[in-house]
Amino acid sequence: MRTPERPFLVAAIVLGVLAGPSAGPAGAGDDLEYGVKAVYLVRFAAFVEWPAAARRGADAPVGLCVIGQDPFGPRLDAAARGQRAHGRPLVVRRLAGPAPLDACDIVYVGRGAEPMLREAGDPSGRLIVTDAAASSRRGMIHFVVAEGRVRFHIDLRAASGAGLTISSRLLNLALSVQRR
């Protein structure tokens, strides 16, 4: 029921709506792209379910961590502001140096963060989001820009291995889904 082609224009309009004005250092193209990615990161929290064991408490916020270089700037904070997922508030954390990922539920892997991720070891209970613009390595969700539009691949096997459940509605929107 879907076609892979998505006009960038549409995404741009939606982005304009959702992300609001941007104050980031990047150019107009980057600005749009990372605005969309920021919103997507927030949305992922709603379409992914974590295992009960991964919970750090009933009210513990959903930790949205950016490791490595942060391409979003305030756009991510704006997208996450006031948002909740599964009844929990969203908290954006930026981990510049090597640090434990204990309070992270969603980990965006920025440029130069691969060693950090490797050090963190077991990814169990964490959604690892990678970006083609930052590295070639693929996490459970991997951002790409296809035909001028922000899209993503999903590695369902890795996600399941980490104990995560990804909504079929999200799977439907992925460019590709890696199943077991």
Binding site: M1, R2, T3, R6, V10, A11, V14, L15, L18, V36, Y40, R43, A46, F47, S167, R169, L170, N172, L173
Partner: peptide
């Protein structure tokens, strides 16, 4: 919901 969340107007 998915289409709305990720701006997929066609979907």
């Amino acid at each position: 919901s998915g289409a709305l969340a990720f701006g997929d107007r066609a979907a």
